[in-house]
Design a protein around this nucleic acid. Structure first.
Length: 872
RNA sequence: GGGAGCUUAGCUCAGUUGGGAGAGCAUCUGCCUUACAAGCAGAGGGUCGUAGGUUCGAGCCCUACAGUUCCUACCA
């Protein structure tokens, strides 16, 4: 083994070995329970980023843990075509080449898309492999592949036939840059520091004017009324009067509608039904005309008047304001902050636009999806996300599923040119079933990418066919994804699973946070604060990256990632590496014979470490079950570094150099036993390094990843002896402390004397370890005069010091210790003097407190006598 | 406007049946001790955001407030 950890030397080979052996495969196996995780398919718009690395680590860690626990563990991989997001990228690419998608035409453009899918789909999958994911690659799915196209088609027809899909003329969110409609959740609202314009609208009869306020003066030409609140006494007299709409000189009425807030602005609202969702509702209620003045590309059309036709909406805004100023129709312009909707993909300003789109009727679908969460069938981890989910589901709007895109799943609705019949079938129809015509045209639009993602938990398992896979692996066990796609994806999978499969798509959904930089900011190209996981892998190894991502982050919380974390992780793995090297080298040097741990005579230190190991196993297992990987990581860290390396390995070194071959052999057996357990506990998080070391263990299996996860061995629990050893360790720390305070170099050794007060047998069994641990020469029994004394519960240790010792410093140290113990005594006394505590607290705690007080008082006596001795 | 999260050491964060405040990094001191200087031993550092309340006892439970982040909403 190399002297230092060198992940590059083994990671690739190990991954190939796993693949070759087929360990990632999962099949219907009636003898085992399934544990299924369907991986959220990454968008193939780019390469792996740190967020992918994070979610992948969580998924792979949990599936590896479950696999080792004996489940038929399936981690199913796939990628997402991400219709709009990818189309934006490809259009950008074409633009650089001086082309547009219109120049190519639909067919050639889709070929370009295919090329992109291929290129980026493969890149990101290669990077997933670098992360060590143990997914069943034979089941790789793509949201646009043939099987998924079939699923989408089936799902669409199902909803259409049930009347849950309809086409409607409504106001939708329109992106003028992407040229498509968007669903409500694809619109991101951002603070906008702009202006609000107070505009005078003259009465037609010349009797003055009223004032309306607007942030979007360019929509003025589409106004069809001005509304006031029916209960607004200021305006009761003028309802019904006609206004002369400025610039266009169209007559529009003043109407009354409860939508208007009397308190806001002037209490008068201009109504533009074609370009505002609220105004649209008002317009419908009052049967007003809908005048569209903005084109789909964001320029003004002829309805806006010759003056403005062809201008961009924002240029038009300026010109309208300018013209109104010239006509003295601007009352005032105030600075005004509001929220403006932006396109999630291209960040341009969304325009509410009247258009014909396809919608999914949500109320009926939402209800069962609400019930399964309320009655606990489907659990969110952490639970608080259930509220977020429920409140959204309970107030859900119909889902706009059509996109004016070429990529993605094309809407499978055909219209008969002759009779107007709409046809939705599983196969493309050629003849109109109504009139027999063959003039059929397919809807031009594509589906929202999330329509196919919603089917993912079952479309990946063969649906709509009734497969054995579905029967066995569905409902899946766990969905792991970030909280920012609860609405986009999680919610839609839930109602889809219930609607198509009649069953929840997963029993639990683990919501993790986002990875941020060490200042808490989102990582982004513009800030230049991104961390490239592939670079991290190159430099520190995959295991260190994985470990650093689960370390110190609670589930559901955003994770801050900085270089310190990955260095700490790498250092820890290096520590493990070196400890393993130590164990394995000792093994080679001895004539090692593997023994059953239960046949070995254990001394106190052995019992200590085995008991601590059991507790670690218990805590680690409990934490894996709760998906609390941060605690898993820290438990293992603490056990490996502090308990195993710093105390146990250091302590038992004399046994390894013993003349007695049986002692040597027994000791190595214990080391190997513990190392084996450590590797298995850590394997789910750090698969490579644990496999690499495991392969060097005597009597190892074919692979650690298919070996079984450790369980507590009750025969190896020695809690009482462990406590005695810990007491001795406390005394040893006292020795080290004195030496450090006195600035004694580690290589200056003296004999150490020990007086055993209690538990003689067990203390005697570990005397050999004391010199090594306490930097002593030899351990001698009995008292020693002219020495520093360290008192513990079971032992007194004496550290002889010569006269060169700085008495002042030692008195200072002892005084500090005295202060500490006095504080403890005061605390204990105040508790015990508290009648409430004594009568109401559990008897066990009261007794424990009494014992502590007694010990502290004895300790205090010895400290005072030491101080007195120093002062002489 | 509504909702949720967060506030603990200089920094990043852990901390559930309420029972003597923790880790890593950073800082300081002494050590290359035959697994490991990516290391070893030791030390310093916290009114647990503020103010109340419940309790024998609160970082933890309740209330209010402050700061901060996110989600959500049709305020022209």
């Amino acid at each position: 083994m190399n002297k230092t950890l060198d992940p590059k030397s083994y990671e690739k080979d190990i991954y190939s070995m796993w693949l070759d052996k087929g360990y990632f495969k999962a099949n219907v196996n009636k003898n085992k329970s399934p544990f299924t995780i369907i991986m959220p398919p990454p968008n193939i718009t780019s390469k792996l980023h740190i967020g992918h690395a994070y979610t992948t680590t969580l998924q792979d860690t949990i599936i590896r843990y479950k696999r080792m626990q004996g489940y038929e563990a399936l981690l199913l991989p796939g990628t997402d075509h991400a219709a709009l997001a990818t189309e934006v990228k490809v259009v950008e690419k074409l633009k650089k080449e001086g082309k547009t998608k219109e120049m190519l035409g639909r067919k050639a453009f889709l070929e370009e898309m295919q090329k992109w899918y291929h290129q980026y789909g493969n890149l990101i999958l290669e990077q997933f492999k670098q992360m060590g994911v143990s997914c069943d690659w034979d089941r790789l799915a793509f949201t646009m592949d043939e099987d998924r196209q079939k699923s989408v088609r089936y799902a669409f027809k199902h909803l259409y036939d049930k009347g849950l899909i309809y086409q409607g003329d409504r106001i939708t969110n329109w992106c003028c840059s992407c040229h498509t409609a968007l669903s409500n959740i694809e619109v991101e609202y951002e603070d906008h520091h702009g202006y609000i314009y107070h505009i005078r609208y003259p009465f037609q009869d010349g009797s003055g004017y009223i004032v309306v306020a607007t942030t979007r003066p360019e929509t003025l030409m589409g106004d069809v009324a001005v509304a006031v609140n029916p209960t607004d006494e200021r305006y009761t007299g003028i309802v019904g009067k006609m206004l002369d709409l400025p610039l266009v000189h169209r007559a529009i009425p003043i109407i009354a509608d409860a939508y208007v807030d009397k308190e806001f602005g002037t209490g008068m609202v201009k109504i533009t039904p074609a370009h505002d969702p609220n105004d649209y509702e008002v317009g419908k209620r009052h049967h007003l005309p809908m005048i569209q003045t903005i084109n789909l590309d964001g320029t003004m059309n002829e309805n806006a008047g010759a003056e403005y036709c062809g201008l961009d909406r924002f240029a038009c805004r300026e010109k309208v304001v300018e013209d109104l100023k010239n006509l003295d129709l601007i009352e005032k312009i105030e600075k005004y902050d509001n929220k403006v909707g932006h396109c999630q993909r291209c960040h341009s300003v969304i325009e509410p636009m009247l258009s014909k789109q396809w919608y999914v009727r949500m109320k009926e679908l939402a209800k069962p999806a609400i019930d399964v969460v309320k009655d606990g069938q489907l659990k969110f981890v952490p639970k608080r996300f259930e509220n977020l989910y429920l409140s959204w589901m309970e107030n859900i709007d119909d889902w706009c599923i059509s996109r004016q895109l070429w990529s993605g799943h094309r809407i499978p609705v055909f219209t008969c040119e002759d009779c107007g019949q709409k046809i939705v079938e599983l196969e493309d129809p050629t003849v109109c079933p109504h009139c027999g015509s063959t003039h059929l045209t397919q809807d031009e639009d594509a589906l929202d990418t999330w329509f196919s993602s919603a089917l993912w938990p079952f479309s990946t398992l063969g649906w709509p066919n009734k497969t054995e896979d579905l029967a066995y692996f569905y409902p899946t066990s766990l969905m792991i994804t970030a909280y920012d796609i609860i609405f986009f994806w999680v919610a839609r999978m839930i109602f889809s699973g219930l609607e198509y499969m009649g069953q929840i798509p997963f029993k639990e959904v683990l919501m993790h946070g986002l990875v941020r930089d060490n200042l808490g900011r989102k990582m982004s190209k513009s800030l230049g604060n991104g961390i490239d996981p592939v670079e991290m892998i190159e430099k520190y190894g995959t295991d260190a990256l994985r470990y650093s991502l689960v370390m110190g982050t609670a589930i559901g919380m955003d994770a801050k990632f900085g270089m310190e974390k990955i260095e700490t992780s790498r250092n820890f793995l290096n520590k493990l590496w070196n400890a393993s090297r130590f164990v394995l080298e000792s093994l080679k040097q001895a004539d090692f014979v593997l023994k059953d741990i239960h046949t070995i005579a254990l001394d106190g230190l052995d019992e200590y470490i085995l008991t601590e190991l059991s507790h670690t196993i218990e805590e680690v297992e409990k934490s894996y079950e709760k998906y609390d990987l941060s605690v898993v990581a820290s438990s293992i860290y603490e056990f490996v570094w502090t308990k195993f390396c710093d105390w146990y390995i250091e302590g038992i070194k004399p046994k390894l150099y013993s003349n007695d071959p049986q002692i040597r052999n027994d000791t190595i057996n214990i080391l190997v036993y513990i190392l084996d357990k450590i590797l298995k506990l850590l394997h789910p998080i750090c698969p490579f390094v644990t496999e690499e070391i495991y392969q060097n263990l005597p009597n190892h299996g074919p692979s650690i990843m298919i070996d079984s996860f450790p369980h507590i061995d009750k025969e190896l629990l020695f809690v009482d002896h462990r406590d005695i050893i810990e007491d001795l360790m406390e005394a040893i720390r006292g020795v080290r402390n004195i030496r450090a305070e006195m600035n004694v170099a580690d290589n200056i050794r003296t004999n150490i004397y020990i007086e055993i007060l209690d538990a003689e047998e067990i203390i005697n069994s570990v005397l050999y370890a004391i010199p090594k641990l306490a930097f002593g020469k030899e351990i001698c029994k009995g008292k020693c005069d002219n020495a520093k004394m360290i008192v513990a519960k079971h032992v007194k240790l004496y550290l002889p010091v010569d006269d060169m010792v700085d008495k002042e410093a030692e008195i200072l140290r002892l005084t500090k210790e005295l202060e500490k113990i006095d504080k403890e005594i005061a605390r204990s006394k105040s508790m015990l003097n508290n009648a409430g505590f004594v009568s109401k607290a559990p008897q066990k705690l009261v007794d424990a407190e009494k014992e502590k007080l007694q010990q502290h008082e004895e300790h205090r006596k010895t400290i005072i006598s030491s101080i007195d001795a120093m002062k002489k």
